[in-house]
Design a protein around this nucleic acid. Structure first.
Lengths: 259, 259
DNA sequence: CGGGGATTTGACACATATCAAGAGCGGTGG
DNA sequence: CCACCGCTCTTGATATGTGTCAAATCCCCG
């Protein structure tokens, strides 16, 4: 069962079927006070204007580790901004392991792929206890009408996701196993760094199988590559714990493979 | 040298560095009269409103086969709507064959990936003589301010491109060679069909190497798979000419591989 | 008609998948 | 608190799909 539900009544144009566990937004949820505002929707905005966003967020929702935030096929109504936590987006394949399209962390927006068909196309599952902001699409739309910078910002977000997709295509279509894993680790590292976490030492929230599902390898190969990197002194690995000992070395593995 | 250039003076906020070979838009280029409007930006619009778009297009531009429409790294100013023709989007890799991120045809929009960084990230090259509509981003922005349906439409377009990317990830990360090629052929076929062309018989505009660069295989493997399909009576191939003899059979090759 | 690139086909190599077994860790319950 | 159980991870042996290298053919275009 997905999180506790507590609602505060329907929003015009927004069917109240969203499970939420926080109050409706009466100035309580403020982008202007959010710790990840520098990465999230308000990014790049000078202070005062951020308050324009303060009635954008409908509610927050707590997603315990292992619970689904979005189920593929469900009707699209909202985007979700990740406040804290870690998610994986994936499609299920009967028998085979999940095909993972990405991992998302604080400040990132999920659900953009659902706009086109008015339905979500991917499953999104929390890999650790997480909090998200529910952003009803109709509200975003309405606010976009009068906030040019918000239109622009949403365009940039979507454009970035398109570009991210191209990066993954590069990874999947043109890189060897070690290159893929190196690229994966470096990507994670820089994203942690952007959030003020240690860029050298971090915890992998996902399993080897999930990593494999993302970079297009089997879990065994991922494990082997980790071991190979360890033996060469590039990283330390102890199950979920990873410490990057030689960033330059990892970049060298990537070689001239363009990401 | 890229096509003939003929301009009609600067547009506010739009530096006149775009090579164009048609007149500036004085009601001459009309989405409302365009043959691909059903697939392009105006898609889904009731007739009369389409005229709102008529001053969106700055100019058309002819791109001869083999010429570049967009060069990776160049500053982002415009989107391009394909009127006629066929393009490939790709990144160059020194030594190795191009990594192809997609093929585009009439009614499709290219350049969306450039919004995020104000620069194009992919090369886009015409594979046959083509015509595109140049859509200055500032104009699209301005028009979006007063046309809710256009905002929505652009969101949908970008969302679709995100979803397309996920489809390619699926293909590259989880499918065997024959599955990839079958998916590629079926995808092309349905897109031709949507444009009123024969869905069973069509001309491949791209080389085997380009196909390989797209589906993540070498040109030899692509060729072998084509031959295998031919031997099994699924298709006829004669260089660029392809005829699908057994659609069901191709779908069967895909099996339960989810696209 | 000639030339050069694209395509096909073959032989072989190799990277990664597959199959299998064992070890380590974490969570649960006594 | 300890012991057990199950799941994830690691490591090994082997299989196999696809890449690589090479050569012949075909076509298109000049």
């Amino acid at each position: 069962m997905p999180a506790v539900e507590r609602r505060t009544g329907p929003i015009p144009g927004f069917a109240a079927t969203e499970p939420v566990d926080d109050f409706s937004n009466r100035g309580r949820l403020r982008c202007s006070r959010c710790s990840v505002r520098g990465l999230c929707l308000p990014s790049g905005l000078a202070g005062r204007n951020v308050e324009d966003l303060d009635d954008l967020v409908y509610a927050t929702r707590r997603i315990p580790a292992g619970e689904m935030l979005i189920r593929a096929g469900s009707p699209f109504r909202s985007l979700y901004a990740i406040r804290t936590g870690f998610f994986k987006s994936y499609t299920e394949q009967q028998g085979r392991p999940d095909r993972v399209t990405g991992f998302q962390m604080a400040g990132e927006i999920v659900g953009l792929d659902g706009i086109d068909r008015d339905a979500h196309t991917l499953n999104v599952k929390a890999l650790e206890d997480s909090h998200v902001c529910v952003i009803p699409y109709v509200r975003l739309e309405a606010l976009s009408a009068r906030l040019p910078w918000l239109r622009r910002r949403v365009h940039r977000l979507m454009s970035r996701e398109i570009g991210t997709g191209h990066g993954v295509m590069m990874l999947l279509g043109a890189m060897a196993a070690e290159e893929r894993v190196a690229a994966f680790l470096l990507n994670l590292s820089s994203r942690f760094a952007a959030r003020g976490f240690d860029e050298a030492e971090f915890v992998l929230r996902m399993s080897r199988e999930d990593i494999g599902g993302y970079v297009g390898l089997t879990l065994e190969t991922v494990s082997r590559v980790f071991s190979a990197f360890r033996d060469r002194g590039l990283i330390e690995v102890q199950l979920k714990m990873v410490r990057i000992l030689d960033v330059g070395g990892l970049h060298a593995v990537l070689g001239r493979a363009v990401l």
